[in-house]
Amino acid sequence: MPAISREDVAHLAQLAHLEMSDTELEKMTGELGVIVDAIKSVSEAAGNDVPATSHPLPLVNVMREDVVGQTLTQEEALQNAPDAEDGRFKVPAILEGE
């Protein structure tokens, strides 16, 4: 059984807001399958007694004091906005998600 199905890829594409053609879906299913297979070898090496690594460095509690620093100006903040109005980012009406 392949590690990843065409439906999985279609679902992920939807979650990622990517539009993919049938050809692309087909191609990506194959390519992702190869990647997933490659990564499988890791789980063969590490047994259940080895916790999954989320952070490779042995660091904890990297924190800062609660002191205000430098902020952007409104102009700087909006500099790369595709569109802006009244000092705010202007975005298309949100139809889904509500």
């Binding site: 800062r64 609660d66 620093g69 902020t71 903040a77 000092g87």
Partner: peptide, 27 residues
Amino acid sequence: NTATKMFSDAPNAFGDVPNTNVTPVDL
């Protein structure tokens, strides 16, 4: 009601001019 945000040192304040209490992290 901390002085700054959770992951950036921008002010945590209510009612300020829009998009002024922001750092590159917040955006």
